[in-house]
Design a protein around this nucleic acid. Structure first.
Lengths: 198, 198
DNA sequence: TTATCAAATCAACATTGTGTTCAGTGAAGG
DNA sequence: CCTTCACTGAACACAATGTTGATTTGATAA
């Protein structure tokens, strides 16, 4: 790697960081290339050497995070998860997912937050939904109806993501990753019990 | 009501409709006052007689829908809902909520969709969460821990809204309101059963 | 040391949307 | 007939955009 590529990389990073900061501050719509250049401490012209516009930065950031996220989510198997849970242990693949999100917390908080991107939220749900429900249809015949399965995916993926959004919102430093994972299973079990007892 | 007020009202409506159409087409960020005036077939200057900018239109639209929604959601009582469900009937207050959403489907689809507003989504979740979980803490001691309750709210509200978003996305004309309501309870019961049998 | 080359800077430009203003138009109502 | 009032149309200064071309910087390699 030449020094030029390194400078190139650092400038791109500076732009991305400025972007995250600006979106959190004023919302995506009010972000301007002018201010991005100002915050990133680069010339406005330099911005255009790396990105065509602010939408381009958004795309780049989203791609980066979605690829990283999918890398961990694809190892999650819901049946194994419940099995592990029954033995009173935490399910490692899911811990890795939450850890991944925590590591990129500023970006996720921004994209999933009040000023964020609905399309990103939707893509994250897709990743959760498609992988987490992979083999659930094997054990329950209702889950074989494609329409029901589709709504089941939306239901569970939204629920999980909703908890994660709440966690990010509150400043996740309070609640460690392990408790976060345990919380998900407590919530699902709680709902199951309520349905059972009524 | 004078004719002038009527004209006034119709112009505002035209702007709102143009706004919905434009957001769906190009996304909120790329909506311009210029194009809104073009689509609504009014003079650009006329726009500023009704709204100060596009954010103002967004606010107006959101307020309108949130007030309407809350009007129905506040009659939903989860305990009654499960009671009704056990007797094989559909829970009327929830039917009214879904009907309300269906009646304003274009606006809801836009605001909750890929090009929509995360802050609106969040507000809808708040309305769902605060009303639906109102008395759930009475029957289960876990639900009394405020932090758990907070996450439980996020969990359930997100799940329900996720299903509604899926419904709107697919074009809700396919699935009638009654089946939509039944689906929610089928989903919750399914999850309960899966947790119970594993 | 010096020539080289990519990255970043700087200034200038036409373009587009913004928000405001102000003189007009036309239809309804008194 | 004349007032009222929503709306029109044109003009304005302003701000951000995206592009260009000339220039500076600094590390690398002969």
């Amino acid at each position: 790697m030449s020094v030029h590529e390194k400078m190139n990389f650092e400038t791109k990073q500076a732009i991305k960081n400025a972007f995250i900061q600006q979106v959190e501050e004023v919302g995506f719509e009010r972000v301007t290339v002018k201010n991005l250049a100002l915050v990133a401490e680069i010339n406005r012209g330099t911005f255009y050497l790396h990105y065509s516009d602010k939408y381009d930065v958004m795309e780049d950031l989203q791609q980066e995070l979605l690829m990283e996220l999918e890398r961990y989510v694809k190892h999650v198997q819901p049946l194994d998860a419940f099995q592990t849970l029954k033995m009173g242990q935490l399910y490692q693949p899911f811990i890795k997912v939450i850890t991944c999100i925590k590591e990129h917390a500023p970006a996720f908080r921004m994209l999933l937050g009040e000023q964020g991107s609905p399309s990103f939220t939707q893509k994250v749900k897709m990743i959760f939904g498609s992988h987490i429900l992979d083999r659930l249809s094997l054990i329950r015949k209702e889950a074989q109806d494609p329409e029901f399965q589709q709504y089941l995916q939306a239901f569970i993926a939204s629920a999980i993501l909703g908890v994660i959004q709440e966690w990010l919102d509150k400043g996740n430093e309070n609640l460690p990753v392990e408790e976060m994972v345990a919380l998900h299973f407590r919530l699902i079990r709680f709902l199951g019990n309520v349905v059972g007892t009524i």
